[in-house]
Simulated scan of single mutants.
Amino acid sequence: MDEKFFDRHDQAILRILLDDSRTPLQEIGKAVGLSTTSCWNRIKRMTDAGAIQSYTVKVDLAQIGYQDTVIVQVTLGSHSQETLDEFGRALESIPEVLEAFLISGDYDYFIRIAVKDTRDYERLLREKLYKIPGIRHSKSSFVLRTLKKKDTPLTG
């Protein structure tokens, strides 16, 4: 999206939607000083341009039984496109994998996984992660506390 079309009103609208995507247009308009129609047009333009990709619900993972988060760093034995594609597909099939990044540096992947507890993580390793062909090395770290978590750099 071209920056000249992404002004302070668009940023203000996005901040409101990031806080609660169910906020009524009338409320958004009042908060940002624009008419309901103007807000709707801006939201539609940002959606059409791909800046707004979806509307979703934030879930407290602990409330639904996933008490722990594990960061797993993985190195693959091969870096062929076929190996990378197969590894990506395998991660897609594991519901506990929340995010996976192909990274530079000592490891190839940085993966964030939600688990119920250490036994659940052990099960996931044995039954799912270690069954993916091509993993040469992995390193796991349990998250002790989340200090900051945001989806965008927009501030309030």
Rank of each mutant, 00 (worst) to 15 (best):
Arg89Asp: 11
Val115Asp: 06
Tyr109Cys: 03
Ala31Glu: 14
Lys150Met: 04
Tyr121Asp: 02
Leu61Trp: 14
Lys44Pro: 00
Gln81Val: 09
Ala51Lys: 11
Arg119Asp: 12
Pro133Glu: 13
Ser54Gly: 09
Asn41Thr: 04
Val59Lys: 13
Ser78Thr: 05
Thr37His: 01
Tyr107Asn: 00
Arg42Ala: 00
Val97Cys: 07
Thr23Pro: 11
Trp40Arg: 00
Glu92Ile: 00
Asp120Arg: 12
Arg136Pro: 00
Arg145Ile: 00
Gln73Val: 02
His137Gln: 15
Thr36Asn: 10
Ile16Tyr: 01
Leu124Met: 10
Glu27Cys: 02
Arg119Gly: 09
Gly77Ser: 08
Asp85Met: 08
Arg145Phe: 06
Val115Asn: 07
Gly156Cys: 07
Val72Gly: 01
Val74Gly: 01
Phe142Trp: 12
Trp40Ala: 00
Thr155Cys: 01
Leu14Gly: 08
Ile135Phe: 03
Leu61Gln: 13
Tyr109Met: 03
Thr155Glu: 15
Leu18Ala: 13
Ser38Lys: 06
Gly65Glu: 10
Asp85Gln: 12
Thr56Arg: 04
Pro153Ile: 01
Ala114Asn: 12
Asp106Thr: 00
Ile71Gly: 01
Lys149Thr: 09
Arg45Asp: 06
Gly88Lys: 10
Val115Trp: 06
Thr47Leu: 06
Trp40Tyr: 06
Tyr121Gln: 00
Asn41Val: 02
Pro133Ile: 04
Gln53Phe: 12
Lys149Ser: 11
Leu91His: 03
Lys148Val: 14
Asp120Lys: 10
Leu124His: 04
Val70Gly: 05
Leu61Gly: 13
Lys44Trp: 12
Lys58Phe: 15
Ser140Gly: 12
Gly65Ala: 10
Pro24Cys: 15
Tyr130Ser: 09
Asp151Lys: 07
Pro153Leu: 04
Gly156Val: 11
Gln53Thr: 11
Val32Phe: 14
Tyr107Asp: 00
Glu27Phe: 05
Pro95Cys: 02
Met1Pro: 02
Lys116Asp: 07
Tyr107Ser: 04
Arg8Asp: 14
Leu34Asn: 03
Leu34Arg: 08
Leu25Asp: 11
Thr155Tyr: 11
Lys116Arg: 15
Lys148Pro: 01
Asp10Arg: 04
Tyr55Lys: 12
Ala49Trp: 07
Ala100Val: 08
Ser78Ile: 00
Ile16Asn: 05
Leu102Gln: 05
Val97Glu: 07
Phe110Cys: 02
Phe101Ser: 01
Leu17Gly: 13
Ile135Pro: 04
Ile135Gln: 06
Leu125His: 03
Phe87Leu: 08
Val70Met: 15
Asp108Val: 01
Val97Trp: 07
Tyr130Thr: 10
Ala49Gly: 14
Ser80Tyr: 14
Asn41Ile: 03
Leu129Arg: 02
Arg145Ser: 04
Ala62Trp: 03
Leu61Phe: 15
Lys149Leu: 10
Thr23Cys: 06
Ser138Glu: 09
Thr37Gly: 04
His79Ile: 06
Asp60Leu: 12
Gln73Gly: 06
Ala12Phe: 09
Phe87Gly: 09
Leu98Gly: 02
Arg89Lys: 09
Thr47Trp: 14
Arg145Tyr: 10
Ala49Val: 02
Leu61Ala: 15
Trp40Pro: 01
Leu129Pro: 02
His9Ile: 09
Arg119Ile: 03
Lys139Cys: 01
Arg89Tyr: 14
Thr23Ile: 10
Pro153Ala: 02
Val115Met: 08
Leu154His: 05
Ala31Val: 03
Tyr107Ile: 00
